[in-house]
């Protein structure tokens, strides 16, 4: 298996240059708030797709509950920033605690689904996300159905970009270590993995915790970007949207799924002018992209 970013150093330079370029554009007012907003959402989507890749791509388990972890991170971090009100570090602390909470739920989901595979796992994770959403709908402390309002908008492009960068680096590092190899081995063959001394259960839990933690982080950024949270933002569509990015980029292929996240974030914005046909066009473009990708794969273009 060839790893995607072989040279970490090159990668750091590359991302720093992109960041400086974007900051430069914004400081000369070439990028207005609207475009900066799109870029921020793009970073959040990239974090989501990278985190989902840990379970769906590397561990090879189909999950449909990613929006659930995101929702937990979003609501809990928003709750914490309100609690800590104006202290200087309230945002980073809230982001961390929100992610931690999502990670704890990751452990719970992993423990419940430890012996499940395929369709069964997909159904349980889907149910998990729906339960989370329904609890949020009825939880008055966080606004219930009418939404959680008045969240301070701490998230800006720089914040989202930095966190995205760290998430990608950490994910690559995990995959390149013995833990990552163990996770990949489980995807390939559980029986052979445990015969090689890999504690399959532990590494499944590890993958879920990492994935859920990062999804919670994305949720926290999202909450403090939007300023308002509604349970309906975390429906099954959201989980599927992230999964589509993952599939499109190639399961277990970080570079591919990052590119897919960029394209699928921009696409709805580009289609805004023709709003009535927007969803239709979105679907058509998706199908075309899938076909093109298959075509390339068959020809041996994408390995």
């Amino acid at each position: 298996m060839k790893l995607r970013f072989n040279n970490n150093f090159k990668y750091i330079i590359f991302t720093t240059l992109i960041f400086l370029f974007i900051q430069l554009l914004s400081s000369f007012n070439f990028l207005n708030r609207y475009y900066q907003g799109i870029l921020t959402i793009m970073c959040i989507n990239i974090i989501l797709v990278v985190s989902l890749n840990i379970i769906a791509g590397f561990l090879g388990q189909l999950t449909l509950g990613h929006a659930g972890f995101m929702a937990i991170g979003a609501y809990f971090s928003a709750y914490i920033t309100k609690l800590l009100s104006n202290t200087y570090f309230s945002f980073p602390i809230a982001l961390f605690l929100g992610s931690l909470m999502a990670g704890i739920f990751g452990i719970a989901v992993a423990l419940i689904t430890l012996r499940l595979k395929g369709d069964y796992l997909a159904i349980i994770t889907l149910a998990f996300a729906e339960v989370v959403r329904n609890i949020l709908l009825n939880l008055d402390v966080v606004g219930g159905a009418s939404g959680y309002v008045g969240i301070v908008k701490h998230t800006n492009f720089a914040y989202a970009y930095l966190i995205m960068f760290v998430v990608i680096i950490l994910t690559i590092s995990v995959i390149k270590s013995k833990s990552g190899r163990a996770i990949l081995a489980i995807k390939e063959d559980e029986i052979a993995a445990s015969a090689s001394g890999v504690d399959v259960g532990n590494y499944k839990i590890l993958a879920f915790v990492f994935s859920a933690f990062f999804a919670g982080l994305a949720g926290g950024l999202y909450a403090h970007y939007m300023g308002i949270l509604e349970p309906k933002a975390f429906r099954l569509d959201k989980s599927v949207e992230i999964l589509v990015m993952c599939v499109l980029g190639g399961m277990g292929n970080l570079k591919g799924s990052i590119i897919a996240a960029i394209i699928l974030t921009l696409l709805p914005e580009l289609l805004q002018g023709i709003s009535s046909y927007r969803t239709l066009l979105y679907a058509v473009v998706l199908i075309v992209m899938m076909l093109a990708k298959n075509h390339l794969t068959l020809k041996g273009g994408v390995k």
Binding site: R181, L184, D189, S196, V198
Partner: peptide, 21 residues
């Protein structure tokens, strides 16, 4: 294993490294 159970999509080297896990 009687029916080969390698980590088919991983490299030959990674297969051995996982054996050393």
């Amino acid at each position: 294993f009687q029916n080969i159970r390698l980590f088919q999509n991983l490299s030959v080297l990674d297969n051995v490294k996982i054996g050393m896990h």
